[in-house]
Computed example of a mutant assay.
Amino acid sequence: MVHSHEQARCCPDCGVRSGRPHSWVRTRPRDLPVAGRRTGLTWTKRRWRCVNGQCRRKTFTEALPSIPPRSRLTSRLRTSVGEAVADRGRTVVQAARDFEVSWPVANTAVTAAAEAAEGHAAGDAPGDRRDPTREGEVPPGRGARRR
């Protein structure tokens, strides 16, 4: 599959679109299995020179939302590992084994899935929640006891 994404040529630091190629880099990110078999994905991507003289980054590689920079797994695979534990009742060890990833990778995916679910349940982004106990409010059922 060939895919062109305009933002892939933009410097991640300054955002300037580059027109000066530097070299080619080959990466093999892991994706979801198909019919129970591991898929072979090879991405030959460009390394670009940043054309902004004020930017501290001299070169950068193309990146897509589904394959972040320096990631060895696609976002789909990470999400599926997290959902296997959060939604389907698998343990972290079982999900790691089923998707052929390490335990730390599976655990990080589960943590991300839990934070995303918590944010959706609260109706806001995970970092935007307020803590009523820090603001002096007393949660229901936690008031002073009567004797």
Rank of each mutant, 00 (worst) to 15 (best):
T111I: 14
P104G: 06
S71N: 07
A96L: 09
N107K: 15
E100Q: 05
R17I: 10
A63R: 11
G40A: 01
A86P: 02
T39P: 02
P65C: 09
W24M: 13
S18N: 09
F60Q: 01
A113Q: 11
S18A: 15
R145A: 11
T74F: 06
C55R: 03
A113G: 02
D31M: 05
R30M: 09
E100F: 02
A125R: 10
A106Q: 01
T74K: 00
W103G: 01
P21V: 05
V81W: 07
A8D: 08
A121H: 12
P139K: 07
A84I: 05
P132R: 01
F60T: 02
K58S: 14
S66C: 14
A122I: 01
N52F: 11
T27I: 15
D98W: 15
A63T: 11
K58C: 10
R37G: 02
P126Q: 02
A112Q: 11
R130V: 14
R78P: 00
A106T: 00
S18F: 04
A8C: 12
W24Q: 14
R38A: 14
W24G: 05
V34H: 14
S4C: 04
P140T: 02
A144E: 12
P12C: 13
C50E: 02
G127I: 08
D124P: 00
G123E: 06
T74S: 06
C11E: 14
R97F: 12
T44A: 12
T44M: 08
H3E: 11
R72Y: 05
R134V: 10
T108R: 15
R9Y: 02
R142G: 00
V81I: 15
D13K: 13
T79W: 10
A106I: 04
R146V: 09
R20C: 03
P21G: 11
D128L: 09
R70F: 14
G143N: 04
P68F: 07
A116P: 04
W43N: 03
V138N: 01
V25A: 07
C10H: 12
R97M: 09
R145L: 13
R49C: 15
E6D: 10
T59G: 02
E135I: 06
